[in-house]
Design a protein around this nucleic acid. Structure first.
Lengths: 275, 275
DNA sequence: TTAAAAATTCGATAATACCGAACGATAATG
DNA sequence: CATTATCGTTCGGTATTATCGAATTTTTAA
């Protein structure tokens, strides 16, 4: 399975420095440290030893030991039976799914997304903004084995995805500017929009059209159609997209996909409002 | 959508008292308290105010406030824009999916589960033991709209599910006894096995057959076939099941489902070992 | 407008998290 | 097999830091 470049390098993004400062100032030291451990473990799927963790955190082993013990009591981390390495625990899996279950959007969107998915055999995504990133809430895989895929629970920058552009298009000029300052316009491919001017123009088009196209801006060869969804209060807060290889996404078929994606998004919006 | 009775009442289970003691003894007080807040929020999908949380925890508001602020900095909790109520945050969603992604079993099992799901049009589950509970790792929904469903990330007792019985059957008599003492044999329906003797007999049958049947022991009218999966070391650690309404799960078709479920489980096992 | 309730800030206090050192256990090395 | 090195774990003194109650501010309700 192929992931986007960004994969586990949510670290890579420069904004982290700013975030980290905030976290370090955080009220309760020990809690912040404990959650930092979780962050560290989340970037090492093979697990880490106590020594490794305490080295990375630049804290004495005994300190980290206590924090880890507490996290383990709550099943936020588990230990590999043989190696004794620490891993993320099942409670996080449980909680993550609980969070997902609380979002009413998923129940509404799922069947409609499935219809879209079957209709075209392409990957269908549901996403929302979270702290200036696109967060993927749901994904239905393409039929094609060559599934160029993101993943549920992963983040991507907003300015280069169909989903993201749809949501950015809703922002006021001031909000947009803040977004750019905060997040930057990092290119993922040579097609990625990297200037404010270009982005503004693109977003104006999105607003006019009522949908957004990502044309290889995340990944070469990947084209994707995003359409906005309104929540129960009529505010655009989600989006769906259909993505596939360029060779399946052009001409008449693309027009059809655009039309059906918008239709599906509208259907979801309507259901969200009238429930 | 219908969930099992147990739904969000993971609280309901009496074992919690024992667990809580352990948690309260936990090394780092503030961390334990913070994670307790998460637990509390996870049982209130509508969110809670600071006052409510601090009341439930029997702690001063200012104490809880600091903990909440820290959790919020890490996006473990978020605040509803209007009400200001605290909710579980997106970071938990992110982490939960990360945990899932780290489990190699899912990648292997998914396509095979999908085949099973399409073949019979019934719900297919993947589960593992976690602290003496069945934890549902993956689920493919039935075609039928009347989908009697559990959910990914939810727990059920082991002694009454097809998945659970398959895994219990692997335990030594001593381990089984410990399970019973710790978890008890709580009935969910009048068909649920509630005595050690009966359970031992049932598990012997499961071992002999190589599969387990849950015949309305979780929910009246629900029948389900579970088969064991070995991990890369050859140890049975997972199971899959096919479940549906009794009216679709009997006679020749049931035999067929049993056969195919075992076949699928074996296929997954083989792939797990040879990779 | 006033009152009531909730959220947030503040500061003194001592409880508690922290750290370094010491101890076992286990693995690696000669 | 002996020795060293590494890792995880325990312990107790210390002062940092979480805690708590009261005061302040903000929001909501009347």
């Amino acid at each position: 399975m192929l992931y986007f470049k960004c994969k586990e390098e949510s670290k890579g993004c420069e904004i982290m420095s700013e975030k980290k400062t905030k976290k370090e100032q955080s009220k309760i030291q020990s809690v912040a440290r404990a959650l930092n451990i979780v962050d560290i473990l989340s970037s090492n799927s093979d697990g880490m030893s106590l020594a490794q963790i305490s080295e990375k955190m630049e804290l004495p082993k005994s300190t980290v030991y206590g924090l880890l013990a507490t996290l383990r009591d709550f099943n936020y981390v588990s230990q590999d039976n043989e190696s004794g390495y620490y891993l993320l625990g099942t409670r996080l899996f449980e909680l993550g799914n609980q969070v997902a279950r609380n979002w009413d959007i998923k129940d509404v969107a799922f069947p409609i997304m499935r219809k879209l998915n079957k209709q075209f055999g392409e990957t269908v995504h549901l996403g929302a903004e979270d702290n200036g990133d696109m967060l993927y809430l749901e994904k239905l895989e393409s039929d094609s084995l060559l599934d160029i895929s993101s993943g549920v629970g992963l983040r991507l920058p907003m300015h280069c995805s169909g989903l993201g552009k749809v949501l950015l298009a809703e922002k006021s000029p001031a909000e947009l500017k803040r977004y750019i300052i905060q997040k930057g316009l990092t290119p993922l491919t040579k097609r990625t929009i990297t200037t404010q001017k270009e982005l503004e123009k693109e977003l104006a088009r999105v607003r006019k059209q009522g949908y957004a196209i990502d044309d290889g801006e995340i990944m070469e060869g990947l084209r994707c159609v995003g359409a906005p969804i309104q929540d129960a209060n009529g505010k655009v807060r989600y989006a769906i997209s259909v993505s596939g290889h360029i060779k399946n996404m052009y001409g008449k078929r693309l027009d059809n996909i655009i039309h059906e994606t918008i239709k599906a998004a509208d259907e979801i919006s309507k259901t969200m409002i009238t429930r």
